[in-house]
Design a protein around this nucleic acid. Structure first.
Length: 571
DNA sequence: GCCGTTTTCGGCCCGACTGTTTTCAGTCG
Protein backbone atom coordinates (compact mmCIF):
# COMPACT_ATOMS: atom_id res chain seq x y z
CA UNK A 1 0.00 0.00 0.00
CA UNK A 2 2.90 2.36 0.50
CA UNK A 3 3.47 2.08 -3.24
CA UNK A 4 -0.06 3.31 -3.90
CA UNK A 5 0.67 6.47 -1.97
CA UNK A 6 3.97 7.01 -3.79
CA UNK A 7 2.39 6.52 -7.21
CA UNK A 8 -0.53 8.79 -6.37
CA UNK A 9 1.86 11.46 -5.11
CA UNK A 10 3.97 11.29 -8.25
CA UNK A 11 0.90 11.68 -10.47
CA UNK A 12 -0.45 14.47 -8.31
CA UNK A 13 2.87 16.27 -8.56
CA UNK A 14 2.80 15.94 -12.34
CA UNK A 15 -0.69 17.40 -12.31
CA UNK A 16 0.34 20.37 -10.19
CA UNK A 17 3.49 21.07 -12.20
CA UNK A 18 1.52 20.92 -15.45
CA UNK A 19 -0.97 23.38 -14.00
CA UNK A 20 1.85 25.68 -12.91
CA UNK A 21 3.23 25.54 -16.44
CA UNK A 22 -0.31 26.42 -17.48
CA UNK A 23 -0.32 24.52 -20.74
CA UNK A 24 -3.02 21.89 -21.09
CA UNK A 25 -5.62 22.19 -18.35
CA UNK A 26 -7.35 18.92 -19.15
CA UNK A 27 -4.17 16.94 -19.28
CA UNK A 28 -3.25 18.08 -15.79
CA UNK A 29 -6.75 17.25 -14.58
CA UNK A 30 -6.35 13.73 -15.93
CA UNK A 31 -3.28 13.19 -13.77
CA UNK A 32 -5.12 14.51 -10.72
CA UNK A 33 -8.05 12.24 -11.48
CA UNK A 34 -5.77 9.22 -11.79
CA UNK A 35 -4.05 10.11 -8.51
CA UNK A 36 -7.37 10.34 -6.66
CA UNK A 37 -8.45 7.06 -8.13
CA UNK A 38 -5.33 5.32 -6.84
CA UNK A 39 -5.72 6.89 -3.42
CA UNK A 40 -9.19 5.38 -3.22
CA UNK A 41 -8.08 1.95 -4.37
CA UNK A 42 -7.22 0.19 -1.17
CA UNK A 43 -5.82 -2.72 -3.12
CA UNK A 44 -2.09 -2.86 -3.85
CA UNK A 45 -1.46 -1.20 -7.20
CA UNK A 46 1.37 -3.68 -7.78
CA UNK A 47 -1.14 -6.52 -7.75
CA UNK A 48 -3.35 -4.72 -10.25
CA UNK A 49 -0.34 -4.15 -12.43
CA UNK A 50 0.64 -7.83 -12.16
CA UNK A 51 -2.82 -8.79 -13.40
CA UNK A 52 -2.38 -6.35 -16.28
CA UNK A 53 -5.46 -4.42 -15.18
CA UNK A 54 -4.10 -0.92 -14.63
CA UNK A 55 -6.22 0.55 -17.42
CA UNK A 56 -9.33 -0.87 -15.75
CA UNK A 57 -8.81 1.61 -12.93
CA UNK A 58 -11.06 4.63 -13.52
CA UNK A 59 -9.09 7.55 -14.94
CA UNK A 60 -6.07 5.47 -15.95
CA UNK A 61 -5.49 4.99 -19.66
CA UNK A 62 -2.57 3.72 -21.68
CA UNK A 63 -0.30 6.73 -21.17
CA UNK A 64 -0.67 6.94 -17.40
CA UNK A 65 -0.52 3.15 -17.05
CA UNK A 66 2.88 3.22 -18.80
CA UNK A 67 4.09 5.90 -16.41
CA UNK A 68 2.90 3.90 -13.40
CA UNK A 69 4.75 0.83 -14.67
CA UNK A 70 7.86 2.92 -15.14
CA UNK A 71 7.54 4.21 -11.60
CA UNK A 72 7.08 0.72 -10.16
CA UNK A 73 10.08 -0.61 -12.13
CA UNK A 74 12.53 2.25 -11.82
CA UNK A 75 11.13 4.56 -9.15
CA UNK A 76 11.01 7.36 -11.70
CA UNK A 77 8.74 8.88 -14.30
CA UNK A 78 10.56 10.66 -17.11
CA UNK A 79 7.88 13.34 -17.45
CA UNK A 80 8.08 14.15 -13.74
CA UNK A 81 11.87 14.40 -13.83
CA UNK A 82 11.65 16.80 -16.77
CA UNK A 83 8.90 18.87 -15.16
CA UNK A 84 10.93 19.21 -11.97
CA UNK A 85 13.85 20.49 -14.02
CA UNK A 86 11.71 23.03 -15.84
CA UNK A 87 9.81 24.13 -12.72
CA UNK A 88 12.06 23.51 -9.72
CA UNK A 89 9.35 24.34 -7.20
CA UNK A 90 8.53 22.40 -4.02
CA UNK A 91 4.87 22.13 -4.96
CA UNK A 92 3.82 20.27 -1.81
CA UNK A 93 5.08 23.08 0.40
CA UNK A 94 3.48 25.93 -1.53
CA UNK A 95 0.29 24.13 -2.44
CA UNK A 96 -0.41 23.60 1.27
CA UNK A 97 -0.94 27.33 1.76
CA UNK A 98 -4.70 28.00 1.82
CA UNK A 99 -5.95 30.02 -1.16
CA UNK A 100 -2.65 29.54 -2.96
CA UNK A 101 -3.03 27.47 -6.10
CA UNK A 102 -1.12 26.79 -9.30
CA UNK A 103 -1.64 30.26 -10.76
CA UNK A 104 -0.29 31.98 -7.69
CA UNK A 105 2.64 29.58 -7.40
CA UNK A 106 3.41 30.18 -11.05
CA UNK A 107 3.31 33.95 -10.58
CA UNK A 108 5.52 33.82 -7.49
CA UNK A 109 8.03 31.57 -9.22
CA UNK A 110 8.20 33.48 -12.50
CA UNK A 111 8.31 36.98 -11.00
CA UNK A 112 10.21 36.41 -7.77
CA UNK A 113 11.91 33.03 -8.09
CA UNK A 114 9.98 31.66 -5.13
CA UNK A 115 10.42 27.87 -4.94
CA UNK A 116 9.51 26.95 -1.36
CA UNK A 117 8.20 28.31 1.95
CA UNK A 118 11.58 29.76 2.95
CA UNK A 119 12.08 31.72 -0.25
CA UNK A 120 8.45 32.85 -0.12
CA UNK A 121 8.97 34.13 3.40
CA UNK A 122 12.08 36.02 2.31
CA UNK A 123 10.17 37.59 -0.56
CA UNK A 124 7.39 38.57 1.83
CA UNK A 125 9.83 40.12 4.33
CA UNK A 126 11.48 42.09 1.54
CA UNK A 127 8.09 43.43 0.45
CA UNK A 128 8.54 41.96 -3.00
CA UNK A 129 4.94 40.73 -3.34
CA UNK A 130 3.58 44.25 -3.30
CA UNK A 131 2.92 45.48 -6.80
CA UNK A 132 2.56 42.04 -8.33
CA UNK A 133 -0.56 41.62 -10.41
CA UNK A 134 -3.53 40.74 -8.21
CA UNK A 135 -1.53 41.04 -5.00
CA UNK A 136 -3.39 43.42 -2.77
CA UNK A 137 -2.85 43.93 0.96
CA UNK A 138 -5.39 41.28 1.97
CA UNK A 139 -4.00 38.63 -0.32
CA UNK A 140 -0.48 39.24 0.89
CA UNK A 141 -1.47 39.00 4.54
CA UNK A 142 -3.48 35.85 3.80
CA UNK A 143 -0.40 34.26 2.28
CA UNK A 144 1.70 35.31 5.27
CA UNK A 145 -0.81 33.69 7.66
CA UNK A 146 -1.16 30.68 5.42
CA UNK A 147 2.53 29.82 5.70
CA UNK A 148 1.99 28.79 9.32
CA UNK A 149 -0.84 26.49 8.30
CA UNK A 150 1.29 25.00 5.54
CA UNK A 151 4.09 24.36 8.04
CA UNK A 152 1.70 22.67 10.46
CA UNK A 153 0.78 20.23 7.72
CA UNK A 154 -2.57 18.78 6.76
CA UNK A 155 -4.10 16.80 9.55
CA UNK A 156 -6.75 14.12 9.29
CA UNK A 157 -9.05 12.88 12.00
CA UNK A 158 -10.35 9.38 12.67
CA UNK A 159 -13.97 8.90 11.66
CA UNK A 160 -14.82 7.84 15.20
CA UNK A 161 -13.36 11.05 16.63
CA UNK A 162 -15.02 13.34 14.10
CA UNK A 163 -18.45 11.77 14.23
CA UNK A 164 -19.42 12.77 17.77
CA UNK A 165 -18.16 16.30 17.14
CA UNK A 166 -20.19 16.52 13.94
CA UNK A 167 -23.28 15.09 15.61
CA UNK A 168 -23.08 17.67 18.39
CA UNK A 169 -22.79 20.43 15.80
CA UNK A 170 -25.77 19.11 13.88
CA UNK A 171 -27.78 19.03 17.08
CA UNK A 172 -26.87 22.61 17.94
CA UNK A 173 -27.74 23.81 14.45
CA UNK A 174 -31.03 21.89 14.51
CA UNK A 175 -32.09 23.83 17.56
CA UNK A 176 -31.88 27.19 15.77
CA UNK A 177 -35.39 28.31 14.90
CA UNK A 178 -36.09 28.35 11.14
CA UNK A 179 -33.89 25.28 10.67
CA UNK A 180 -35.98 22.44 9.26
CA UNK A 181 -33.26 19.87 9.38
CA UNK A 182 -29.48 19.61 9.60
CA UNK A 183 -27.35 16.69 8.56
CA UNK A 184 -23.75 15.56 8.18
CA UNK A 185 -22.54 15.33 4.57
CA UNK A 186 -19.15 14.99 2.86
CA UNK A 187 -16.62 12.27 3.59
CA UNK A 188 -18.17 11.76 7.01
CA UNK A 189 -21.43 10.70 5.40
CA UNK A 190 -19.46 8.45 3.08
CA UNK A 191 -17.94 7.01 6.29
CA UNK A 192 -14.36 7.36 5.20
CA UNK A 193 -11.81 5.96 7.64
CA UNK A 194 -10.33 9.38 8.26
CA UNK A 195 -11.71 12.77 7.38
CA UNK A 196 -10.10 16.11 6.57
CA UNK A 197 -13.03 18.34 7.48
CA UNK A 198 -16.64 18.23 8.63
CA UNK A 199 -19.34 19.13 6.12
CA UNK A 200 -22.80 20.01 7.34
CA UNK A 201 -25.92 20.76 5.32
CA UNK A 202 -28.83 22.73 6.71
CA UNK A 203 -32.35 22.91 5.31
CA UNK A 204 -33.69 26.41 5.95
CA UNK A 205 -35.10 29.32 4.06
CA UNK A 206 -33.40 32.17 5.93
CA UNK A 207 -29.71 31.47 5.67
CA UNK A 208 -28.11 34.63 7.01
CA UNK A 209 -29.31 34.13 10.57
CA UNK A 210 -27.95 30.60 10.59
CA UNK A 211 -24.61 31.75 9.23
CA UNK A 212 -24.33 34.31 12.03
CA UNK A 213 -25.12 31.69 14.64
CA UNK A 214 -22.66 29.25 13.08
CA UNK A 215 -19.63 31.55 12.97
CA UNK A 216 -20.52 32.85 16.43
CA UNK A 217 -20.39 29.45 18.11
CA UNK A 218 -17.95 28.82 20.93
CA UNK A 219 -14.76 26.92 20.08
CA UNK A 220 -14.46 28.73 16.73
CA UNK A 221 -10.94 30.05 16.22
CA UNK A 222 -11.18 31.45 12.67
CA UNK A 223 -13.82 32.30 10.14
CA UNK A 224 -12.35 31.28 6.80
CA UNK A 225 -15.30 32.03 4.53
CA UNK A 226 -18.67 33.60 5.22
CA UNK A 227 -21.31 34.15 2.59
CA UNK A 228 -25.09 34.08 2.38
CA UNK A 229 -25.34 30.31 1.76
CA UNK A 230 -21.93 28.93 2.63
CA UNK A 231 -19.44 29.42 5.45
CA UNK A 232 -16.29 27.76 6.71
CA UNK A 233 -14.67 27.96 10.12
CA UNK A 234 -11.72 26.46 11.90
CA UNK A 235 -12.29 25.26 15.45
CA UNK A 236 -9.81 25.82 18.25
CA UNK A 237 -8.57 22.26 17.91
CA UNK A 238 -7.84 22.86 14.23
CA UNK A 239 -10.80 21.09 12.66
CA UNK A 240 -12.30 22.72 9.59
CA UNK A 241 -16.09 22.84 9.35
CA UNK A 242 -18.00 23.76 6.19
CA UNK A 243 -21.65 24.72 6.40
CA UNK A 244 -24.05 25.02 3.48
CA UNK A 245 -27.64 26.21 3.73
CA UNK A 246 -30.22 25.37 1.09
CA UNK A 247 -34.01 25.66 0.89
CA UNK A 248 -36.24 22.59 1.28
CA UNK A 249 -36.87 22.19 -2.44
CA UNK A 250 -33.11 21.85 -3.00
CA UNK A 251 -32.26 19.82 0.07
CA UNK A 252 -31.87 16.48 -1.73
CA UNK A 253 -29.79 18.03 -4.48
CA UNK A 254 -27.67 19.76 -1.87
CA UNK A 255 -27.17 16.54 0.02
CA UNK A 256 -26.21 14.75 -3.17
CA UNK A 257 -23.78 17.47 -4.20
CA UNK A 258 -22.29 17.88 -0.72
CA UNK A 259 -21.79 14.15 -0.12
CA UNK A 260 -19.57 13.72 -3.14
CA UNK A 261 -16.96 12.56 -3.83
CA UNK A 262 -15.87 14.85 -6.64
CA UNK A 263 -15.47 12.12 -9.25
CA UNK A 264 -18.87 10.66 -8.44
CA UNK A 265 -20.43 14.11 -8.85
CA UNK A 266 -18.59 14.88 -12.05
CA UNK A 267 -19.80 11.65 -13.61
CA UNK A 268 -23.39 12.24 -12.48
CA UNK A 269 -23.40 15.72 -13.95
CA UNK A 270 -22.02 14.38 -17.21
CA UNK A 271 -24.85 11.81 -17.33
CA UNK A 272 -27.33 14.60 -16.68
CA UNK A 273 -25.87 16.49 -19.60
CA UNK A 274 -26.33 13.57 -21.99
CA UNK A 275 -30.01 13.61 -21.05
CA UNK A 276 -30.33 17.31 -21.74
CA UNK A 277 -30.41 18.06 -18.02
CA UNK A 278 -28.40 20.25 -15.68
CA UNK A 279 -27.43 18.97 -12.22
CA UNK A 280 -26.25 21.31 -9.51
CA UNK A 281 -26.81 21.70 -5.77
CA UNK A 282 -30.20 23.32 -6.38
CA UNK A 283 -31.68 20.43 -8.27
CA UNK A 284 -31.88 18.58 -11.53
CA UNK A 285 -33.19 20.90 -14.25
CA UNK A 286 -34.59 20.65 -17.74
CA UNK A 287 -34.23 24.18 -19.06
CA UNK A 288 -35.43 26.15 -16.03
CA UNK A 289 -37.82 23.55 -14.72
CA UNK A 290 -36.78 21.50 -11.68
CA UNK A 291 -37.21 17.81 -12.46
CA UNK A 292 -35.91 16.59 -9.08
CA UNK A 293 -34.09 17.97 -6.07
CA UNK A 294 -36.07 17.76 -2.85
CA UNK A 295 -34.87 14.22 -2.26
CA UNK A 296 -31.70 12.42 -3.34
CA UNK A 297 -33.63 9.38 -4.57
CA UNK A 298 -35.47 11.44 -7.17
CA UNK A 299 -32.21 12.66 -8.66
CA UNK A 300 -30.71 9.19 -9.07
CA UNK A 301 -34.03 7.95 -10.41
CA UNK A 302 -34.32 10.71 -12.99
CA UNK A 303 -30.78 9.92 -14.16
CA UNK A 304 -31.74 6.29 -14.72
CA UNK A 305 -29.80 5.02 -11.69
CA UNK A 306 -30.73 2.93 -8.68
CA UNK A 307 -30.26 4.82 -5.43
CA UNK A 308 -26.57 4.68 -4.51
CA UNK A 309 -25.83 4.51 -0.77
CA UNK A 310 -23.47 7.31 0.35
CA UNK A 311 -20.71 4.87 1.34
CA UNK A 312 -20.29 3.81 -2.29
CA UNK A 313 -20.11 7.24 -3.88
CA UNK A 314 -16.49 7.33 -4.91
CA UNK A 315 -16.75 6.58 -8.63
CA UNK A 316 -15.34 3.10 -8.15
CA UNK A 317 -17.86 1.30 -10.30
CA UNK A 318 -21.01 2.14 -8.35
CA UNK A 319 -22.51 4.35 -11.09
CA UNK A 320 -22.19 1.62 -13.71
CA UNK A 321 -23.62 -0.92 -11.25
CA UNK A 322 -26.54 1.42 -10.54
CA UNK A 323 -27.22 1.73 -14.26
CA UNK A 324 -27.37 -2.03 -14.61
CA UNK A 325 -29.39 -2.60 -11.44
CA UNK A 326 -26.44 -4.48 -9.95
CA UNK A 327 -25.68 -2.53 -6.79
CA UNK A 328 -24.93 -4.73 -3.78
CA UNK A 329 -27.49 -5.02 -0.98
CA UNK A 330 -25.19 -3.65 1.69
CA UNK A 331 -24.97 -5.20 5.12
CA UNK A 332 -26.65 -3.38 8.04
CA UNK A 333 -25.85 -3.22 11.75
CA UNK A 334 -29.06 -5.12 12.54
CA UNK A 335 -27.79 -8.07 10.50
CA UNK A 336 -25.07 -8.81 13.07
CA UNK A 337 -25.86 -11.61 15.50
CA UNK A 338 -22.70 -11.70 17.56
CA UNK A 339 -19.13 -10.58 18.14
CA UNK A 340 -16.36 -13.11 17.57
CA UNK A 341 -13.26 -11.27 18.78
CA UNK A 342 -13.30 -9.70 22.25
CA UNK A 343 -11.06 -9.49 25.30
CA UNK A 344 -11.42 -9.54 29.08
CA UNK A 345 -9.23 -8.68 32.06
CA UNK A 346 -7.75 -12.16 31.80
CA UNK A 347 -5.36 -10.72 29.20
CA UNK A 348 -5.24 -6.99 28.39
CA UNK A 349 -8.96 -6.16 28.54
CA UNK A 350 -10.31 -3.79 31.16
CA UNK A 351 -13.55 -5.54 32.11
CA UNK A 352 -14.38 -8.94 33.60
CA UNK A 353 -16.03 -11.59 31.50
CA UNK A 354 -19.32 -11.01 33.36
CA UNK A 355 -19.25 -7.31 32.56
CA UNK A 356 -18.49 -7.96 28.90
CA UNK A 357 -21.28 -10.53 28.66
CA UNK A 358 -23.77 -8.18 30.28
CA UNK A 359 -22.87 -5.55 27.68
CA UNK A 360 -23.18 -8.08 24.84
CA UNK A 361 -26.64 -9.14 26.00
CA UNK A 362 -27.69 -5.50 25.75
CA UNK A 363 -26.99 -5.80 22.04
CA UNK A 364 -29.35 -8.78 21.68
CA UNK A 365 -26.49 -10.92 20.45
CA UNK A 366 -27.17 -14.62 19.96
CA UNK A 367 -23.55 -15.57 20.53
CA UNK A 368 -20.41 -13.98 21.81
CA UNK A 369 -16.84 -15.21 21.60
CA UNK A 370 -14.30 -14.54 24.34
CA UNK A 371 -10.88 -14.49 22.71
CA UNK A 372 -8.08 -13.32 24.93
CA UNK A 373 -4.43 -13.15 23.93
CA UNK A 374 -2.02 -16.06 24.20
CA UNK A 375 1.24 -16.53 26.07
CA UNK A 376 3.88 -15.10 23.77
CA UNK A 377 2.20 -11.70 23.90
CA UNK A 378 3.53 -11.06 27.39
CA UNK A 379 2.91 -7.32 27.13
CA UNK A 380 -0.83 -8.09 26.91
CA UNK A 381 -0.65 -10.64 29.72
CA UNK A 382 -1.26 -13.45 27.23
CA UNK A 383 -2.62 -16.76 28.56
CA UNK A 384 -0.64 -20.00 28.64
CA UNK A 385 -2.19 -23.44 28.07
CA UNK A 386 -3.18 -23.98 31.69
CA UNK A 387 -4.83 -20.58 31.83
CA UNK A 388 -6.76 -21.23 28.61
CA UNK A 389 -7.95 -24.63 29.91
CA UNK A 390 -9.19 -22.97 33.09
CA UNK A 391 -11.01 -20.39 30.99
CA UNK A 392 -12.62 -23.13 28.90
CA UNK A 393 -14.00 -24.78 32.05
CA UNK A 394 -15.27 -21.47 33.29
CA UNK A 395 -17.15 -20.73 30.04
CA UNK A 396 -18.68 -24.21 30.06
CA UNK A 397 -20.04 -23.41 33.52
CA UNK A 398 -21.31 -20.01 32.40
CA UNK A 399 -23.15 -21.59 29.48
CA UNK A 400 -24.61 -24.23 31.79
CA UNK A 401 -25.78 -21.58 34.24
CA UNK A 402 -28.14 -20.14 31.63
CA UNK A 403 -27.54 -16.69 33.09
CA UNK A 404 -27.00 -15.14 29.68
CA UNK A 405 -29.48 -15.74 26.94
CA UNK A 406 -26.83 -16.30 24.32
CA UNK A 407 -24.20 -18.86 23.45
CA UNK A 408 -20.81 -18.01 24.90
CA UNK A 409 -18.11 -19.26 22.56
CA UNK A 410 -14.70 -20.37 23.72
CA UNK A 411 -12.05 -18.59 21.73
CA UNK A 412 -8.56 -17.21 21.73
CA UNK A 413 -6.63 -14.68 19.71
CA UNK A 414 -3.65 -16.89 19.06
CA UNK A 415 -0.36 -15.29 18.11
CA UNK A 416 1.24 -16.29 14.85
CA UNK A 417 4.87 -16.96 15.82
CA UNK A 418 8.05 -16.26 13.84
CA UNK A 419 7.68 -19.07 11.32
CA UNK A 420 3.91 -19.33 11.27
CA UNK A 421 3.57 -21.70 14.24
CA UNK A 422 0.63 -21.16 16.57
CA UNK A 423 1.11 -19.98 20.14
CA UNK A 424 -0.91 -22.76 21.85
CA UNK A 425 -0.54 -26.52 21.93
CA UNK A 426 -2.80 -28.49 19.58
CA UNK A 427 -4.41 -30.32 22.50
CA UNK A 428 -5.69 -26.99 23.80
CA UNK A 429 -6.59 -25.53 20.40
CA UNK A 430 -8.67 -28.62 19.87
CA UNK A 431 -11.00 -27.62 22.69
CA UNK A 432 -11.77 -24.10 21.48
CA UNK A 433 -14.79 -23.09 19.39
CA UNK A 434 -13.30 -20.22 17.42
CA UNK A 435 -9.63 -19.52 16.87
CA UNK A 436 -8.52 -16.17 15.55
CA UNK A 437 -4.91 -15.99 14.39
CA UNK A 438 -3.11 -12.67 14.57
CA UNK A 439 0.28 -11.09 13.97
CA UNK A 440 1.50 -9.02 16.91
CA UNK A 441 5.26 -9.34 16.52
CA UNK A 442 8.01 -9.00 13.91
CA UNK A 443 5.87 -6.61 11.91
CA UNK A 444 8.91 -5.47 9.97
CA UNK A 445 9.41 -8.87 8.36
CA UNK A 446 10.02 -8.67 4.62
CA UNK A 447 7.05 -9.15 2.34
CA UNK A 448 8.14 -12.66 1.46
CA UNK A 449 8.78 -13.73 5.05
CA UNK A 450 5.54 -12.22 6.30
CA UNK A 451 3.50 -13.77 3.50
CA UNK A 452 4.98 -17.24 4.07
CA UNK A 453 4.58 -16.88 7.81
CA UNK A 454 0.89 -15.97 7.63
CA UNK A 455 0.09 -18.50 4.91
CA UNK A 456 1.74 -21.27 6.91
CA UNK A 457 -0.43 -20.37 9.88
CA UNK A 458 -3.55 -20.38 7.70
CA UNK A 459 -2.79 -23.95 6.67
CA UNK A 460 -3.29 -25.13 10.25
CA UNK A 461 -6.50 -27.07 10.77
CA UNK A 462 -7.13 -24.78 13.74
CA UNK A 463 -7.18 -21.60 11.66
CA UNK A 464 -10.71 -20.20 11.67
CA UNK A 465 -10.24 -16.45 11.32
CA UNK A 466 -7.27 -14.26 10.36
CA UNK A 467 -7.39 -11.29 12.76
CA UNK A 468 -6.64 -7.71 11.63
CA UNK A 469 -4.90 -9.11 8.54
CA UNK A 470 -2.66 -6.17 7.62
CA UNK A 471 -1.81 -4.81 11.08
CA UNK A 472 -2.24 -1.16 10.30
CA UNK A 473 -3.11 1.58 12.79
CA UNK A 474 -4.66 4.52 10.98
CA UNK A 475 -2.61 7.74 11.13
CA UNK A 476 -0.01 5.83 13.13
CA UNK A 477 1.37 2.66 11.61
CA UNK A 478 1.23 1.45 8.00
CA UNK A 479 0.13 -2.02 6.98
CA UNK A 480 2.92 -4.51 7.19
CA UNK A 481 4.39 -5.77 3.95
CA UNK A 482 2.39 -8.78 2.83
CA UNK A 483 1.10 -10.26 -0.41
CA UNK A 484 -2.62 -10.22 0.23
CA UNK A 485 -3.46 -12.07 -2.98
CA UNK A 486 -1.41 -15.03 -1.70
CA UNK A 487 -3.07 -14.75 1.68
CA UNK A 488 -6.53 -14.76 0.10
CA UNK A 489 -5.69 -17.73 -2.07
CA UNK A 490 -4.39 -19.71 0.92
CA UNK A 491 -7.40 -18.72 3.01
CA UNK A 492 -9.70 -19.86 0.23
CA UNK A 493 -8.04 -23.27 0.09
CA UNK A 494 -8.16 -23.72 3.84
CA UNK A 495 -11.60 -22.28 4.60
CA UNK A 496 -10.27 -19.41 6.68
CA UNK A 497 -12.42 -16.35 7.29
CA UNK A 498 -10.98 -12.84 6.94
CA UNK A 499 -11.59 -10.53 9.86
CA UNK A 500 -12.75 -7.00 9.30
CA UNK A 501 -11.52 -5.58 12.58
CA UNK A 502 -13.95 -2.83 13.52
CA UNK A 503 -11.68 -0.91 15.87
CA UNK A 504 -11.79 2.67 14.52
CA UNK A 505 -8.02 2.85 14.45
CA UNK A 506 -7.70 -0.42 12.54
CA UNK A 507 -10.63 -0.90 10.14
CA UNK A 508 -8.53 -3.73 8.85
CA UNK A 509 -9.26 -4.97 6.10
CA UNK A 510 -9.33 -1.82 4.03
CA UNK A 511 -11.87 -1.22 1.31
CA UNK A 512 -9.81 -2.54 -1.58
CA UNK A 513 -8.90 -5.69 0.30
CA UNK A 514 -12.54 -6.27 1.20
CA UNK A 515 -13.49 -6.14 -2.46
CA UNK A 516 -10.57 -8.39 -3.33
CA UNK A 517 -11.56 -10.86 -0.60
CA UNK A 518 -15.04 -10.94 -2.10
CA UNK A 519 -13.58 -11.65 -5.52
CA UNK A 520 -11.81 -14.64 -3.98
CA UNK A 521 -15.10 -15.88 -2.57
CA UNK A 522 -13.90 -15.42 1.00
CA UNK A 523 -16.17 -14.77 3.93
CA UNK A 524 -15.75 -11.97 6.42
CA UNK A 525 -16.13 -11.75 10.19
CA UNK A 526 -16.81 -8.22 11.44
CA UNK A 527 -15.45 -8.09 14.99
CA UNK A 528 -14.85 -5.29 17.46
CA UNK A 529 -11.70 -6.56 19.22
CA UNK A 530 -13.29 -4.86 22.25
CA UNK A 531 -11.05 -4.44 25.28
CA UNK A 532 -13.79 -2.84 27.42
CA UNK A 533 -17.57 -2.90 27.43
CA UNK A 534 -18.04 0.41 25.61
CA UNK A 535 -15.93 -0.82 22.73
CA UNK A 536 -18.59 -3.31 21.71
CA UNK A 537 -20.13 -0.23 20.05
CA UNK A 538 -17.25 -0.27 17.55
CA UNK A 539 -19.35 -2.73 15.56
CA UNK A 540 -20.98 0.21 13.78
CA UNK A 541 -17.60 1.32 12.40
CA UNK A 542 -17.00 -2.17 11.11
CA UNK A 543 -20.36 -2.03 9.37
CA UNK A 544 -19.51 1.35 7.84
CA UNK A 545 -16.26 -0.05 6.50
CA UNK A 546 -17.92 -3.23 5.26
CA UNK A 547 -20.48 -1.19 3.35
CA UNK A 548 -17.71 0.88 1.80
CA UNK A 549 -16.20 -2.42 0.69
CA UNK A 550 -19.45 -3.51 -1.04
CA UNK A 551 -19.95 -6.25 1.57
CA UNK A 552 -23.38 -7.88 1.78
CA UNK A 553 -25.06 -9.77 4.58
CA UNK A 554 -24.31 -13.17 3.09
CA UNK A 555 -20.58 -12.39 2.94
CA UNK A 556 -20.40 -12.10 6.72
CA UNK A 557 -20.37 -15.13 9.02
CA UNK A 558 -21.51 -13.36 12.16
CA UNK A 559 -24.86 -12.68 10.54
CA UNK A 560 -25.54 -16.43 10.67
CA UNK A 561 -27.61 -18.19 13.34
CA UNK A 562 -25.42 -19.99 15.90
CA UNK A 563 -25.60 -23.47 14.41
CA UNK A 564 -24.90 -22.35 10.88
CA UNK A 565 -22.04 -20.20 12.15
CA UNK A 566 -20.31 -23.19 13.71
CA UNK A 567 -21.02 -25.33 10.66
CA UNK A 568 -19.47 -22.73 8.38
CA UNK A 569 -16.19 -22.87 10.32
CA UNK A 570 -15.75 -26.61 9.94
CA UNK A 571 -12.73 -27.78 7.96
C1' DG B 1 -4.73 12.38 -20.95
C1' DC B 2 -9.23 10.01 -20.61
C1' DC B 3 -13.42 8.46 -22.47
C1' DG B 4 -17.89 6.82 -25.08
C1' DT B 5 -26.72 6.27 -24.49
C1' DT B 6 -23.20 12.46 -29.32
C1' DT B 7 -18.02 6.01 -29.21
C1' DT B 8 -11.91 6.94 -31.84
C1' DC B 9 -12.76 12.85 -32.10
C1' DG B 10 -14.00 16.47 -29.45
C1' DG B 11 -15.49 17.27 -25.61
C1' DC B 12 -14.12 17.48 -20.48
C1' DC B 13 -19.31 19.51 -13.65
C1' DC B 14 -20.89 23.44 -11.56
C1' DG B 15 -21.34 27.10 -8.45
C1' DA B 16 -19.93 30.03 -4.01
C1' DC B 17 -16.86 33.16 -2.16
C1' DT B 18 -12.91 36.43 -2.10
C1' DG B 19 -10.10 40.07 -3.50
C1' DT B 20 -9.04 42.83 -6.81
C1' DT B 21 -11.12 44.52 -9.92
C1' DT B 22 -14.85 47.95 -12.90
C1' DT B 23 -16.43 42.49 -15.01
C1' DC B 24 -13.33 38.73 -13.56
C1' DA B 25 -9.69 35.30 -12.14
C1' DG B 26 -8.37 32.19 -8.75
C1' DT B 27 -9.41 28.85 -5.36
C1' DC B 28 -12.15 25.56 -3.30
C1' DG B 29 -15.29 21.72 -2.66
Amino acid sequence: MTKNREVAQALEEISLLLQIEGKDKFKSLSYARAARSITGLGEDIENIRDRGELTNVPGIGKAIADKIESFLDTGEIKLLVELRERVPVKVWELEAIPDVGPKTISLLYRELGVTDLVSLEEALDAGKLEGLKGMGKKTISKIADGIKIARAGASRTLLAEAMPIANRLVERLSRISDVNQAVVAGSLRRRRETIGDIDILVDASKASKIMDAFVGMEDIADVLVKGPTKSSVRTKDGLRIDLRVLPTESYGAGLQYFTGNIDHNVKLRAIAKTKGLLLNEYGLFRNDEQVAGQGEEGIYDALGLDYIPPELREDMGEIEAAQEGKLPKLIKLEDIRGDLHTHTDQSDGKNTIDEMLDAAVEKDYEYYCVSDHTQSLTIANGMDEAHVLKRIEEIDELNASGRWKMKILKGAEVDILAHGELDLDDSVLDQLDIITLSIHSRMKDTKQVMTERVCHALESKYAHILGHPTGRLLLKRPEFEIDMEKVFETARHNNVVMELNAHPQRLDLNVGNLRAAKRWGLRIAINTDAHRTGELDYMQYGIFQARRGWVEKYDVINTLPPKELMKSLRK
